[in-house]
Design a protein around this nucleic acid. Structure first.
Lengths: 228, 228, 228, 228
DNA sequence: GATGAATGAGCTTTCATTCAT
DNA sequence: AATGAATGAAAGCTCATTCAT
């Protein structure tokens, strides 16, 4: 039957793919190893030949998924040196990933932190590497003078990823659509301009008042000059 | 033995407290009703006299917890009308809650979204009401002219709460300390000023240039006036 | 609250009535003592003050029900001396009872036989007494010469009650209607006439054939005898 | 231990057999899956590998039992074309089944109707098919002119099966013996002749008397022939 | 390398019944 | 007479995991 379906690598890939599907669809806890095996077309024992435990299977699914996230990043970022553009691209790509793989993203968000011994795990390293792309962009921006040099970079990173995670959660659960361009715009706008209106107004008001005052002064002076 | 330990309300409170502890310590799935009952000192059947199911028990634990979050908010916010100060206070209180109850916060974050039928549940309503405090502060700020009137309010809300959630996750898992004042400052600073350095400089540069120009003009004029 | 609702007899009647309803609606197994108590408005312990066990409660419900079946029988049967009419009336009354109390009848049929120690119980006595009415009618019919005197009376009784039970079971489960007059007619017709058709013809034909065959045989034999 | 006791089919058969025994002995509700498993010599989980639920196990036990009822019917009925003989055979076989398997019959009668979703279940189909054998015999009898053509066939079917069920219930519960030939005679006699004593009996008496007389004659003649 | 039967501990939930107050 | 809190045993069912073949 399925005993001749291919090499060891193929079998592993097959199981991983199936596990990815089932975990994504129903969640980790709600999926049993028996279901995974049945969907692959093998018996439970076979799955355990390739994976030590259910938890390891999940870990490898998530690892594989994280690794796929990096594909194409290099090319996409190539040549985008401008700080703003680079951040925009990273945020947009992140949103696109979520729009295209809502189930996997939900799985990741749900199981990632629950992960026993998450702190320091290979999975965490991958996550770090992923978010580090944004951190690097930020640091480059600081170095280039485009960003404030006192930016709390990791906090900023978490506000971006955490904010997006919260914001699109309803979509990941099947509600509504995801307009990734619009969201990218809004996030960037928030970050770039901040939320306040005061400073600008102050600058502007000060600027205008002073200008007006000086202009009036100048006028008066010029009149005096003219009359004298 | 424990048969005469108190009134119905006390028993309910006792079970809730115990469940809160166990769920917080080991998580929902990893806690069994038998453990809860044993810790209270009763048999499982007794717990089911007061709570319909394990899920309901979790729900009530979380509900009670959410309700406690609102305590003192009114007083604290009283008199804090300034937009900036109000937001700062909300963020600071949120962080303080997490610093003081890391286990419960971790439980909440872990189980909240997994909650079946979360969409529209009473728990979600409480969460909404909680985050709505910040939304209202933002809207008041917009109305008062202290904030940009094109702010994407819900996105902003999610960036604040989601950002904090991500940022302090290690602490919730037992790593490090939480300097809530410092974090509050950083979050507020990010929001108020944005991350860019460009615009301000522009305003400032323009302002200073113009001022300088006019000042010079004035000076020159006054000199002329003085000399004449 | 309900502590002052009445005398002991009232309380007993109340509980019996409630149990009758619940057992009828959902069945014995599917009804819990807690439900009975709740519906009455008392606590479980109170029910046990009046009834030793759940089984006893069922027994008393069924007993009460059986006793009610006899009400009016005397009057109804009064003056109906004709065998056929009497049987007809008994069957019709039985069907009417089922049409009017399908739930209770279903309960009875379901729980009656399962009854532990049914054999010889007071309940069985009541059932006996009930079906005995028909037996007596049959015996009276035999005595009067209206019925065959070699009738297997108990078998006949069981064919009537058992047949009706089977036949109307779908109705007791909520399917269709019960046309008791028509059914009564059919049952009586079957019993009175038997199932055979043209009995006379058959018998006659058989009789004649057999007679003829034997006669021929006899003739031939006699011829042989005669010739030898 | 028992891990190597045989093939899947054997294991299934083993469990079915055990369940059949236990269900028959103590009833469905009173039997636990743990008991079934223990009697087979495996753990509960093993039973659930082969059967989805306790209910399914019961269903399969009953199904298998029903199917066995059909075995041999074809052969037995072969060549028995006469209406009376055919009905007699069906009734007799039914009684023999009950005499030989009282426990299973009791189980069937007890659990059959309680069966949730009985209406339309595969089990009901089997029951239908079983009782249909009698219905067909009746209809054939009608077609052949041996039975009244206005017979209420299903009612008749139910009076036969329901009557027998009631009549032999004490035996199924362990009381007394079952004289199946005698009962068959009585049932057939009731059906054929009805309960009345009118003209038919005369025909019969005449028929039987005459037949007996002729038979005796025939015998005597044959003896004579033999001696000659 | 794959099978697949078997494990065994654990889970949530139910309920008739008891008894001190 | 009534309360109502507590019991305790058992039930059906699930599942990750193992191991002889």
């Amino acid at each position: 039957m399925s005993s001749t379906r291919g090499t060891k690598e193929q079998r592993v890939a097959e199981i991983l793919q199936t596990a990815r599907e089932l975990f994504s669809e129903r969640g980790y806890e709600a999926t049993s190893m028996a279901e995974v095996a049945a969907r692959v077309g093998v018996v439970e024992g076979t799955v355990y030949k390739y994976f030590e435990s259910k938890r390891e299977l999940l870990l490898l699914v998530l690892t594989q998924w994280y690794e796929s996230l990096f594909e194409g990043y290099e090319q996409d970022l190539e040549g985008v040196r401008d700080t703003h553009a680079r951040m925009r691209l990273l945020i947009w790509r992140h949103l696109r990933t979520m729009r295209d793989n809502p189930d996997l993203c939900r799985l990741t968000f749900n199981e990632f932190r629950a992960e026993q011994g998450y702190h320091g795990s290979p999975l965490q390293k991958l996550n770090r590497a992923y978010t580090e792309l944004l951190v690097e962009a930020l640091q480059a921006g600081i170095a280039a003078g485009a960003l404030r040099d006192d930016l709390p970079v990791t906090l900023l990173r978490d506000m971006i990823f955490g904010g997006i995670e919260h914001y699109i959660w309803p979509y990941l659960c099947g509600h509504g659509e995801l307009e990734i361009d619009s969201i990218t715009d809004q996030v960037c706008s928030l970050l770039w301009q901040g939320i306040g209106k005061a400073d600008e107004q102050n600058y502007q008001r000060n600027f205008e008042q002073e200008t007006r005052r000086l202009s009036e002064l100048a006028e008066r002076l010029e009149q005096k000059l003219g009359t004298s």
